[in-house]
């Protein structure tokens, strides 16, 4: 029941966002950006609503949303983890860090845990290559992260 209420809420929200956009294919990208800015991601309902609104096939809107990496199709977790895969971090153990967290949280990069607590993502370079490997949690940057210190950081989030 709660799930249903949540679903309805997103639908209403999307409807709200859709107002004020002209119809037509050209509006797809700005519309998706707006939806993402308001909701944090683009849900399946949102794709359907956008497609309905613009009179486009759902698969085409989904195609556009998946073509641009800026669009997220999965609801981010309460805590959002980014692991740097830039050259320096990669060499410095970023890949091991990613594999470790992926195993611990039981999700692939780009996904959110079932309970909605954590989401995991890779980024190209966070701009602090000297501190490799680097990870960011909810915007806070941690450098020189070992596997155990990563566990520790996650354990102490509220």
């Amino acid at each position: 029941m709660k799930n249903k209420a949540a679903k309805e809420a997103t639908e209403d929200e999307v409807q709200e966002i859709l107002k004020g956009f002209p119809s037509g294919k050209g509006a797809t990208i700005p519309l998706l950006q707006k939806v993402q800015a308001e909701n944090g991601y683009i849900s399946a309902e949102a794709v359907r609503e956008v497609a309905d609104f613009l009179e486009l096939p759902e698969s085409e809107v989904y195609g556009i949303a998946t073509f641009y990496s800026e669009f997220k199709l999965i609801k981010p977790g309460r805590h959002h983890i980014k692991i740097c895969m830039g050259t320096s971090c990669y060499l410095g153990g970023g890949k091991e860090l990613l594999d470790h967290l992926s195993r611990e949280l039981e999700i692939l990069p780009g996904r959110t845990t079932e309970d909605g607590e954590f989401s995991l993502e890779t980024v190209a370079c966070l701009g602090c290559c000297s501190k490799s490997p680097v990870m960011s949690v909810d915007g806070r940057i941690f450098g020189g992260v070992s596997l155990s210190s990563a566990d520790n950081i996650l354990a102490h989030l509220d």
Partner: peptide, 20 residues
């Protein structure tokens, strides 16, 4: 049928499919 399938993703992941 008005576009049941489209191009999805890009690069190596690119493929043809339905929404989600």
């Amino acid at each position: 049928s008005g576009g049941v399938v489209s191009f999805h993703f890009r690069g190596f992941d690119a493929g043809i499919g339905t929404a989600f």
